[in-house]
Design a protein around this nucleic acid. Structure first.
Lengths: 239, 239
DNA sequence: TCTGACCGAGTCATCGGACCATTCATACGG
DNA sequence: CCGTATGAATGGTCCGATGACTCGGTCAGA
């Protein structure tokens, strides 16, 4: 057998690797346009169908972007683009994985809050106040979840680390957060949440990294408690 | 126009969402087999080609697994499966994003080390010693990188959080780590690295979470310094 | 009866071609 | 000079055919 390197891999996977390699080496740069599907297929020696599968795969990874009628382009390759798929984990996970997701968030969110405390400006603080007020006035769960998400998004944005922001964004997918809120509307968790947000805000306003870290940890701790109960109950679905 | 919900989305994207929804609602469970490509295409009302693109997309996300000649299956849906694409970020990132990646690792790795200190058993400690010895005896850069990776992998595994392990695994992709090692073989960083690993090991052996946290933070700090220089130098490629 | 090679149906992998939908630059007409 | 029409370029979708692989059942031989 002469050709040994081929191993047991599909042509599509090989095409994916080839394109990724071209980007890793700098042969393809962010924003650059690629040849047409037909030309790419000819160049890499496969059919257009298989080439399209490879392009689709790189598209969902956030590496490429296909514009109908216009061509295929490399994305900006910023963390936000590349980590978009991160959210699916939060969307389809259940049982103990939910707990593990929250535990990771419990590590990252306090660190983000601490970093934000040193960097956030008056504009950011004002936006936080606006979200807190809007959340407290909110009526529908949908509305409240939206302001809750935005509150945390502003903080992670202020931490000035796109990778951190993208990961926390994935951990905080809307559907996931909605599940949490739906889960515990029982006792008076709304007032407590408002209070916790207020604690975080105060620490940020006072430029107190350690205070922000602790306040954020306490806040996530409440969510962790819910996830722990979920994991201990029936791990399979009950909806 | 009667159908308004269609919006501006491709049939493939719709199919991806449909399958994801079926998994999120529990209609499809981990390990379960799906209908054939043809049946799925007929069921969702699109061609087999487009259906294949959707399946390919879900495959790279780690949600589905296509077995040649056998059928399409839902994966176990564990974090390790779902977060496999995380590594591409580390593979194709450069410039300031490298620094941001390391900074996130600087947050997670100490937390993982602290968690591991409370849980690691004698077997794990023995494996750590073995990796340290093998690394010190290693000759080729390839070999050293391998033992370095394994050392950290054992620790993250001992932290008993699959999500955390998967994220750190992506942050520690082989190609990324190799770039770091290639970057600074100048001064005596090898002895220092050995010493740092030893510090981490000692803290773990003594079941000292805070000691492990600090030792890990120091260790990552060295890598961070390298990434910072990389980001400050020419942000574009120079290879 | 048990074993193991064989075989065929089922299924994914790949290909080639055709046509539709959208974009964009260019030429045309006012 | 500007807006519009037009057509080539290009991605999106569909179809049919063939190859490659898996897996279960069959059947000859011990």
């Amino acid at each position: 057998m002469p050709d040994e390197t081929a191993a047991r891999t599909t042509v599509t996977e090989r095409a994916i690797e080839e394109i990724k390699a071209k980007i890793a080496t700098g042969e393809l740069e962010p924003g650059q346009r690629l040849p047409t599907e037909r030309d790419l297929a000819a160049e890499l020696g496969l059919s257009r169908s298989s080439m399209r599968e490879a392009i689709r795969a790189l598209t969902v990874m956030g590496v490429l972007e296909a514009r109908h009628g216009a061509g295929i382009y490399v994305t900006r390759l910023e963390p936000g683009d590349l980590l978009e798929t991160f959210g699916v984990v939060a969307e389809i996970s259940r049982g103990s994985t939910l707990l593990h997701l929250v535990q990771v968030r419990k590590i990252l969110e306090p660190a983000a809050a601490a970093a934000a405390a040193a960097r956030i400006d008056e504009t950011g603080l004002a936006r936080l106040r606006a979200e807190m007020n809007a959340m407290e006035r909110g009526t529908t769960a949908e509305e409240i979840v939206g302001h809750d998400l935005e509150f945390h998004r502003i903080i992670t944005e202020a931490a000035a680390n796109p990778v951190l922001a993208a990961i926390l964004g994935g951990l905080n997918s809307r559907t996931f957060r909605a599940r949490v809120w739906r889960g515990y509307r029982e006792d008076g968790v709304f007032p407590r949440t408002f209070h916790e947000h207020d604690q975080i805000y105060r620490a940020l306003a006072e430029r107190d990294p350690d205070g922000a870290r602790v306040a954020a940890a306490v806040h996530i701790g409440a969510v962790e408690e819910w996830a722990r109960r979920q994991a201990n109950e029936d791990p399979s679905e009950t909806e």
